[in-house]
Write a protein that binds this DNA or RNA. Structure first.
Length: 816
RNA sequence: GCCGGGGUGGCGGAACUGGUAGACGCGCCGGAUUCAAAAUCCGGUUUCCGAAAGGAAGUGGGGGUUCGAUUCCCCCCUCCGGCACCA
């Protein structure tokens, strides 16, 4: 057999072995501890990109490591198969979205297998298949029965030229991506899921999720945005209905000098009816896309409505404005403005010459000029009548009490989180299982008529959903009264599919129920890995859906993902690699040139997983070179013949040193992979150990035994990262058992002990020397020896030593 | 605009709990091997001063705490991600 490293042959050999032995196909019948290792499933865009390779490899390394720890590991894979790109491809190339999607899945599956991932393909889940989406249709009807879904008008981006709803991504600088027409906000009826009913639980549980990164938990907390405040009503001159607003700062109530409502607010519409100028302004406000980032960054504009609200405490008239920064979908669509103590209100008041009144003074008694700078901190009330002198809490309670007693307001909790709008005016998605009847209104499709199957063989024009052109799909009998009725043609947001797929992997073949006992065995997911871009939406929706399934009696689990690893983006030229931007790198070419192991190694070595990884074409070569060195080192050692048994008690100093290095490395890599997930430093440590082995020139029996132990350790510890070459080299080292069934190595504490340690000596915090002391030397001895160092003496000389700090095993700092 | 995360040699990164800044790799320079090249192997490589020993400076910028700060605190700059219809 040739001893040169040929990756294709090595990789095919290992993969054939894994396939033939079915070693990654797992059942539930075992005494071993289970470990469910999952990566966010891909959208089948056509080809794997580097972001996929990164996330799949991270997860595969963890799965293989946990298997070596003796766990019963499930690592499944599937496809987030509904989505907009399939429709775009259909418009562009005339291929039906279904065919395009299934072809892509087939192609990507081949690419994944070439990378050697340890997947249980018997559990593959594809979300565009009726066997999958029927259960989310079913769950939606259950939610309907419980009142957890409802229909209401909501704003979409409307392209007035193409006469179609646009996704935010399809709006470029406020214009439709195809038509280039200015996008408008338009209200249409849509279905919503009541995620706000779970807001408190989703928020509170974050405190009990130690396996999630703090950054993600903080983002979710801020996204839910629970705030305690007061809802209070202002009478409006000439109106019967009061105007209700929410505020977290009732202490600033005396500082209200104007109020603002959204363009869609009934009071604004009423004023517009009698004033063309206002009507024009409101029309202008609606000529913008619906993204929050757009609203928050655009110029703040407003116009007086000529309507006065009555201040509930002073009885004074307060002018009512319509403003483009107030959102109808937030709270009540109206805000009270306190320009003295709110940044945005202050700027708006300055611009429109509205009065600014100071009603809060700094707690430390400092004088401020409210016309010069806004004061947003909490403090002591002034200019606030009977409430003067109260602090924030005192004023909050006194004013809240007053409103509650007078029946004009109440303490309440407000959330930034809004209910989840799940309707999409698109074809390639799960049909929303609703039938509209003139008599019975919206009726959920009964269980025995599920699934509502999406027709796959359609003419796709790009002008509206093709479902609207299929009478057999639309025209149905009302399930309640039997009269002629119409089927809903909107489909679900694709985030609905990705909110529960992790549970379905446990029982993808069940056609009687959504989940079963196998889900009880495998869930929750022990390790979930995916992109940081999903920190809020996907991960919050999945947490919500898990609770919906729990409350439906399908599972006892509340939190779907015990440990979360959010890997950074793969960037190129400073931006996320994406097809849209055209800055992708094809992994396929690299695999063809260097093999899967080199690609896996480079991805894991280039950066720690949570950091963004700026792609560079250089460096892959280095990983390949390392694998060749690794291969050659094992082959040449093995070629020297059989190895005697290692006797740790009879080693010389050099042999002991290498053995110490081996066991230090075992301890370090176990920690790096098992606890820290810093695969880059684990690889660096393997390289160091291999370098030490290469330098170690000792052909004695004991020497070869120590070397053998080191090489075995490297092969075992690199095997989660570069499994193919390690599979082969394990056999080369003389083993009959396949590497996949071998446990992780253990560090021998006795081998770690050293006689001498090096200690750094500083004078006034600056490095001045190094000393070697026995490992058990006490602090006085170390300090004496440090002082004796000639270079240290130069800096201490005859100066008075004020302090000596000894950090055992590390350093001595002499302060003069 | 708001929320979250980054910024360390020519480059990717390391330094885990406040204790040797630059591990490991890339690149580059020098050498060996070769008719030559590729490949491989050996040595060097933060900057400045110095023949060396050694010294000075240095982790985006400014300030602070400390015997000691890449690490903790305050202010600022800049890049990346998310902002509810991209997935």
């Amino acid at each position: 057999m040739s001893t040169a490293y040929h990756p294709e042959a090595v990789e095919k050999g290992a993969q054939d072995y894994w396939t033939a032995s079915h070693c990654f196909e797992v059942g539930e019948d075992t005494d071993k501890e289970k470990f469910y290792c999952l990566t966010m499933f891909p959208y089948p865009s056509g080809k794997l990109h580097m972001g996929h390779v990164r996330v799949f490899t991270i997860s595969d390394v963890i799965a293989r490591y946990q298997r070596m720890q003796g766990k019963h590991v499930l690592q499944p894979m599937g496809w987030d198969a509904f989505g907009m790109p399939a429709e775009n491809a259909a418009i562009k190339r005339g291929v039906p979205p279904a065919k395009w999607t299934y072809d892509n899945i087939a192609d990507m599956r081949v690419q994944m297998d070439r990378l050697g991932y340890a997947y249980d393909w018997t559990r593959e889940v594809t979300t565009c298949r009726p066997e999958y989406y029927r259960w989310e249709q079913w769950l939606f009807t259950k939610m309907f029965e419980k009142g957890l879904v409802y229909r209401k008008n909501s704003i979409v981006n409307w392209d007035p030229v193409d006469q179609t709803v646009l996704a935010n991504e399809q709006v470029i600088d406020g214009r439709g991506w195809r038509s280039d027409a200015l996008v408008e906000r338009r209200e249409i009826p849509q279905w919503f899921m009541k995620i706000t009913a779970y807001a408190d639980e989703l928020l509170d549980e974050l405190d009990r999720m130690p396996g999630w990164p703090d950054s993600v938990k903080t983002m979710q907390r801020n996204w839910i945005g629970r705030s305690e405040g007061v809802e209070l009503s202002f009478d409006v001159a000439g109106e019967n209905e009061p105007l209700t607003v929410f505020t977290t700062r009732p202490d600033t109530l005396f500082g209200v000098t104007y109020m603002a409502v959204a363009a869609e607010h009934p009071l604004a519409e009423k004023a517009a009816a009698g004033d063309p100028e206002i009507a024009a302004f409101i029309g202008e406000c609606k000529k913008t896309d619906a993204a929050e980032a757009t609203l928050e960054t655009m110029e703040k504009k407003g116009m007086p409505l000529g309507i006065a609200a009555i201040h509930p405490l002073t009885g004074e008239e307060v002018p009512l404005w319509v403003a483009n920064f107030v959102l109808m979908s937030y709270g009540t669509g109206a805000v009270m403005a306190v320009p003295g103590h709110d940044e945005r209100d202050w700027e708006f008041a300055k611009k429109h010459d509205l009065p600014i009144v100071q009603v809060i003074a700094p707690g430390d008694g400092t004088d401020i000029d409210i016309n010069e700078t806004v004061f947003v901190d909490k403090g002591v009330l002034v200019n606030s009548g009977q409430y003067d002198g109260l602090d924030y809490d005192g004023a909050f309670n006194a004013i809240a009490d007053y409103f509650e007693e007078s029946g004009r307001g109440r303490r309440t909790v407000n959330y930034r989180l809004r209910d989840w709008g799940v309707s999409r005016q698109r074809y390639w998605g799960t049909p929303i299982p609703i039938i509209y009847c003139d008599t019975c209104d919206a009726v959920p499709v009964p269980e025995d008529q599920l699934p509502v199957v999406l027709p796959e063989d359609v003419q796709f024009t790009g002008h509206g959903s093709p479902l609207k052109d299929i009478p057999e799909f639309i025209n149905v009998a009302c399930p309640q009264c039997g009269k002629d009725a119409r089927r809903e043609t909107d489909t679900f947001d694709t985030f609905v599919e990705s909110s529960w797929y992790f549970a379905r992997y446990a029982c993808p073949d069940n056609d009687k129920s959504m989940l079963d006992d196998r889900a009880a065995y495998w869930t929750p997911v022990d390790q979930y890995t995916g992109g940081i871009e999903h920190a809020i939406l996907h991960l919050l929706y999945a947490r919500f859906f898990q609770r919906i399934m729990r409350d439906e009696g399908l599972t006892d689990v509340s939190e779907p993902f015990t440990n979360l690893l959010t890997q950074g983006m793969v960037l190129k030229d400073g931006a996320k690699m994406s097809k849209n931007k055209g800055n992708t790198v094809d992994p396929q070419e690299l695999i063809a040139k260097y093999g899967a192991d080199t690609v896996r190694l480079f991805m894991m070595f280039a950066a720690p997983p949570e950091q963004a990884l700026e792609w560079s074409d250089d460096g892959v070569q280095g990983s390949f070179r390392f694998l060749k060195r690794f291969w050659n080192a094992v082959q040449s050692h093995s070629g020297d013949g059989a190895v005697a048994e290692l006797d740790p008690g009879s080693l010389n100093a050099a042999q002991k040193d290498l053995r110490r290095k081996t066991h230090q490395t075992i301890a370090k890599i176990g920690d790096d992979i098992g606890r820290r997930y810093t695969f880059n430093t684990a690889i660096a440590a393997s390289m160091e150990l291999l370098n030490a082995v290469t330098r170690f020139d000792d052909a004695s029996d004991a020497g070869r035994a120590v070397k053998h132990e080191a090489l075995e350790a490297v092969v075992l510890m690199l095997s989660p990262i570069v499994p193919h070459i390690c599979h082969e080299l394990w056999a080369v080292l003389g083993h009959k058992t396949a590497l996949i069934d071998v446990p992780w190595p253990q560090a021998d504490d006795a081998a770690l002990e050293a006689d001498l340690v090096e200690i750094v000596v500083q004078v006034n915090g600056k490095l001045r020397g190094r000393i070697s002391v026995s490992a058990d030397a006490d602090n006085d001895v170390i300090a004496q020896q440090a002082l004796a160092d000639p270079n240290v003496q130069r800096f201490v000389a005859d100066k008075e030593i004020r302090k000596t700090i000894v950090v055992p095993g590390r350093l001595v700092n002499i302060v003069v």
